[in-house]
Design a binder for these strands. Structure first.
Lengths: 259, 259
DNA sequence: CGGGTGCTTGATCTCTATCAACTGGTGTGG
DNA sequence: CCACACCAGTTGATAGAGATCAAGCACCCG
């Protein structure tokens, strides 16, 4: 069993919630009242080792999970054990927001590093949405952003070549890490192994490795150990067909007169 | 230009909205007041011919689109014109719900048959969510169901064999058509061409055709013209790795005491 | 009747998977 | 401190899945 502790309105709990608040606040400012209501939610902080499942497919859920540190992924598996990763998640991501409304999870969530997770009761999230239409809008919008990412990933695995897929994933990771201040957009520490990258790209691990080599040989990236550096950003974006808009859609739309 | 007409609270407009109301009402009953508020929304009915774009990628949106009749798909395209379909939509689907909050569309929507579409102003949808927390929950949940379908599709194109992919798509279509009373779950009229099916499966049209032939030869399906019949449902589900739960997730969770 | 579209088939080629082995780093226990 | 196991990354050889190219057929519709 993992270690965990409950923080009721403590500074550590608030700090965890701040990561999410900061992210959604960038999309459109929340009222002071709404911010405070969110920050006073009760959270349960929980630490996971590397490669532990936070949520398992088919599981009944009571809590939403917010990543405080580390990297996690959402994935589904085939009967034969093959795995498809649907998204990567980092600090500030509400990785299991859907549990607020869905009784059962249709997919699993697993850590790719030691992770600290803040769990919030579904009921508390629902009450927040009930009390504050602006929170309802923010949470719904967050789900829409997730959906946009899933669509882009389907395009990635369905229609792009192996090299393009890998390039696309690298660029998404670069942006996501830049968002949380862990990259300048060019250089970053790979948060996952090549095997995991393969499960995200819908490729075999061997071919993912060779696709990475192609990117290196063509001078688009450089890497040593876990360090990855994008050397030629325009060429990478061209190769990947990458357009960052899907990560940062404009919105949420506000009500013109009312709010 | 397409023909269209505005219906303010008329019987024809209400009838169009009923299709969506019926669908979401099955997931959890709405209050009479909430139902009525929805049904009195202003809608603009619009008729499209086959293969017309309802929404184009990058477009600024003002309206949500609800399918009243026909079949449409959401898709994204690569620079070289290759297309990946993300989902199919039928009567009663709010195909462009995301426009309520997102200012721009990240993907396109296209008809696969003559379609009647009901357009609702974004502002009206947002007001509904603002006024009725139960509507906010219903719309958010609908988005979550969409997201679950996208995840399943990513798994489909990323990790399944060609035959399995095609089988999976056929089964999803069978279920969706059964939902709206246009199939008994076994026999249905194919709503899209094999070329479109290929774009949904992440395959070439030729290989999609051969995959269908494999399903026929193995006695899993029979088809003539547009008619498709699932002959061996257990074998089809096994081949596709199909589990209908992703289409019908349990929820939305209600508030225990409050509502 | 002609042209378009969707479905089908055959031949060939390319891309990606699979299998197997080897390297180097890391951690562990004797 | 060394032997060992383990894992991520890498390489080579081979097999197989699916793409591509090209052509023909059937059907519908003007």
């Amino acid at each position: 069993m993992e270690e965990w502790a409950i923080f009721r309105n403590t500074s550590e709990g608030r700090e965890a919630l701040q990561f999410y608040l900061r992210k959604v606040d960038r999309r459109g400012a929340l009222s002071e009242e709404a911010r405070e209501a969110f920050l006073s939610l009760d959270v349960k902080l929980q630490d996971y080792e590397m490669y532990r499942q936070i949520v398992s497919e088919g599981e009944l859920t009571n809590h939403c999970a917010l990543i405080v540190s580390g990297c996690a992924s959402r994935f589904k598996t085939l009967a034969n054990g093959e795995r498809q990763i649907n998204s990567f998640h980092f600090r500030g991501d509400m990785v299991d927001l859907q549990s607020a409304l869905m009784l059962k999870s249709d997919h699993s969530i697993r850590t790719h590093s030691p992770c600290r997770v803040a769990r919030i009761e579904c009921r508390a999230v629902l009450q927040l949405a009930q009390q504050f239409p602006e929170w309802a809008r923010v949470l719904w919008f967050d789900t829409l952003v997730d959906a946009a990412i899933f669509r882009e990933w389907t395009l990635n695995v369905g229609r792009r070549s192996a090299v393009s897929r890998v390039a696309h994933l690298l660029l998404e990771i670069a942006h996501r890490l830049q968002d949380i201040g862990e990259s300048d957009g060019y250089e970053f520490q790979m948060p996952v192994t090549q095997t995991d990258l393969a499960d995200a790209a819908g490729l075999s691990a061997v071919h993912t490795n060779r696709s990475l080599q192609t990117l290196r040989q063509r001078g688009l990236v450089r890497s040593f150990g876990r360090t990855m550096i994008v050397l030629d950003m325009p060429a990478m974006c061209a190769e990947a067909g990458f357009d960052r808009n899907y990560l940062y859609p404009a919105g949420p739309r506000g009500l013109p007169a009312a709010v």
